[in-house]
Amino acid sequence: MQTADVLVIGGGITGSSTALGLMRKGAGKVVILDEQLKSQRLSRGNFGLTWFMCKGAGYPGYSLWCRKAAVAWPEYAEILEDASGYNIELDWTGGAVHAFGQEELDGFARSVETIREGCSSKGIDYPVEVLDRQQFAELMPKMTLGEDVAGGMYTKEQGHVNPLRLLGAVRSCFQKLGGVYHGADGAREIIPQSNGTVLVKTTTETYECRKLVIAAGHGSSRLTAALGEKLNIYPQRGQLMVSARCERKLDIPLLAVRQTQDGTYLLGLSTENTALDSGVTAEAMKSQAANAVRIFPELANLNWVRGWGAIRVMTPDGGPIYSKIPGHENISVLALHSGVSLAPLHTEVIAPWILGETTDNQVSEFSNGRFHA
């Protein structure tokens, strides 16, 4: 039998960034188990935005949470790069969302004001501007806007990263601090013990731990159900497309289009209800391409070389789930979309919360129990 002070089931960005925080807090022996199922590899298939804009309209608590993460991102990236030696390719150049037509632009203005008021009531800023077409075009002087673009939203306090390099950097930092990572070893059964420990049976081993963290994406539902807790998440597929490398012209990422440091363009604004099917479809790729060309007509001339799908972990209100399993306070579950954007908070806030040391009272508002009312 293997032992651990804290066992983390799930080695994606959420599980790994939380495990890193546990090591920094001196939690003892921390072990990550990562099964790496194809349908659960969202950390390798996402768009890479470090984003707070647009998140939490009608849900001020989530807006505030995302804003806190954005504020923390530049320093978080610097610490990761210094400690790991990885360049995670953070471009902190801002971020934008296009509007097709004046009606959509006016809707943006109303949404920004609503979220700004909610953040202000919590004592935090919401630095988002609504720009007309000329102002929007000036953000991207090397690109030509399509005639349907009326303007958009913009903030200078967000950006984008290479999610693969981010995942590598977080895991490297975790292991350099003494953390243990086991790939291709998935949890099969969780057995709470009368002495307060938890047994976890995997495909190859049995582990005993003092605290357990379940951060296994859609694999978490099966594990929590066996403990009597229905996890309120559902799958949503997103598809992405990537071009061949070309001249770097787009310095600011848009929600639908971004250009990486190596010159490739990425398209990534699709939502489909397909259960756990992470495949690609010509229909979704055509829709994404048409949308991107409406924003920047020159994208129609590029060589698009690959597409892939990934399964988002979504909750009914869009916010994350950070929750203790009722009757088992030493078992925590983390389930969410936006693992890249929220990574700093998972390291700096959620890890202490797991250990019972957090001072951020907002975590409690993201309990899975909010959906049971």
Rank of each mutant, 00 (worst) to 15 (best):
I325E: 09
G58I: 02
M23R: 14
H346Q: 14
G339Q: 08
K55R: 15
G48I: 05
S338H: 02
L266Q: 11
G58T: 08
Y126F: 14
A169P: 08
P163R: 00
S84D: 08
K55V: 02
E138Q: 15
L80R: 11
T203N: 14
V280Q: 08
R110Y: 00
L131R: 10
H182C: 11
I79W: 00
E208S: 13
L302P: 12
V31R: 02
A282W: 02
G152L: 06
E283H: 07
L22N: 08
S39G: 07
I88Q: 12
G146D: 11
K29T: 13
F136M: 13
L250K: 07
I214F: 01
L49E: 03
L139W: 01
Q239T: 01
S17A: 15
S364N: 09
G10R: 08
A226P: 10
R258G: 03
I233Y: 06
A290S: 14
D106L: 04
K25E: 15
I32T: 11
L131K: 13
T281G: 10
N273Q: 13
N273I: 01
Q134P: 03
D132Q: 09
L199M: 13
V97R: 14
R294L: 01
G186V: 02
S17E: 06
Q239H: 02
K211N: 14
Q261P: 10
E104H: 09
V280M: 06
A216Y: 06
S338K: 04
G26T: 03
G339L: 01
K249I: 02
A96M: 15
K230C: 05
M140I: 13
E138I: 01
G217M: 07
A373W: 04
P74A: 04
G268T: 01
R133D: 11
K201V: 10
W308V: 12
V305G: 10
S172K: 15
M153W: 00
G309M: 10
A244N: 12
E117R: 14
A27R: 06
E348R: 15
I350N: 06
V257R: 07
S364G: 10
L164G: 11
E348F: 00
G12Y: 04
I311P: 14
N46V: 00
S172F: 00
P320G: 08
K286Y: 04
T3W: 09
T197L: 06
S43H: 05
A150I: 08
A282I: 09
G12A: 03
I190L: 10
G151D: 06
N291P: 01
W353G: 09
N162I: 03
G319W: 00
V170H: 03
T224C: 10
G168S: 11
K122F: 04
S323A: 15
G238C: 03
I350T: 14
F366E: 04
G238I: 02
G11S: 09
H218P: 12
